[in-house]
Nucleic acid binder design. Sequence first.
DNA 1: CGTTTATATGAATGTGTATTCATATGATAA
DNA 2: TTATCATATGAATACACATTCATATAAACG
Lengths: 117, 117
Amino acid sequence: MENENREEELHGARVKTVLAALPNDEQIAEMGARFKTLSEPSRLKILLALAAGELCVEHITEAVGGNQSAVSHQLKTLKDNKIVKCRRAGKKILYSVADAHVMIMIEVAKEHLNCHD
Amino acid sequence: MENENREEELHGARVKTVLAALPNDEQIAEMGARFKTLSEPSRLKILLALAAGELCVEHITEAVGGNQSAVSHQLKTLKDNKIVKCRRAGKKILYSVADAHVMIMIEVAKEHLNCHD
DNA sequence: CGTTTATATGAATGTGTATTCATATGATAA
DNA sequence: TTATCATATGAATACACATTCATATAAACG
C-alpha cells in the first residue's frame, strides 16, 4: 500500500537522523556508567547521605544501615568513579561528594518520585 | 581532643539530619530502578533512537546495531517499566517513548558529557 | 613501640541479567 | 486457508557485581 511506503520512507529517513544524532559508543558507555553507579540502592543511599555534607565511614554506615565492609566496598567504587573524594581527619576518613553532575541527576530523579506516571 | 569531640557532635547531628531527609527504602528502590534501566548501553541507545520519534523494531535494530532478538528483549524490559509504549501499524509494531522523565534524565546526562570533570 | 581504632582489601558465594539460538506467535496478504 | 513477514518468547550460557567473612593496613595515642 502506498501509505505504508510513505511511512517506510519517513521512518527510513528518521533512522538516518537518529544515527547522525546518536552519541558515539564511548559517550554512550560513559552515560551508562554514570547511571549504573546510581542504580544500586546502597550507593544511592550513600550519596543521598553525603548530600548533607562530609561524613566518616562509620557515620555513613549508620546512616545507610548495613555492614562496614559493604559500605567500604561501595565507597571504593564511588571513589574510583570520582563521584566521591575523601580526606583524613584524625583517625577518621571523611568522604564527600566530588561530582556535582551526579548529584543533579539524583535531584532530578527525586523530583520525579511523586509524579504519578 | 576537644576539637574532635565537637566535630563528632556535629557529624552526629548531621547523621540525624541525613536520616530524616532520606527517602524511604521503597522510594530509593524506585529511583535505583529508573537509573538501572538507563545503565545498559543497549537500552540507552534504543531510547536515544526513539527520542527522534516512533520507530518499528526493525529500524530500531538497524539504528542500534545488534540482533533482533536482543532488541526485542530490551524493548520488553522498557515496556514492562513503562518507559516505552507500542502500537501496531500494519505488519509493523511501532515503539515510542512513554516516560518523559526518563528522557529528561538522559538529556541531563548528555549535557554533562562534555564537562571535563 | 605496641595497642587500639578506623578503614580497606581479598576471596568466595550468590544473584541478577544481557545475549544468543531456536522457535513460537500472530497478523497480514495472496 | 495457507504462506509469509515482523516480532516475541524460552531456555541456556556467560558474565558482572553486591555482599559477607576474615583479615590486612595504617594511623594515632598511650
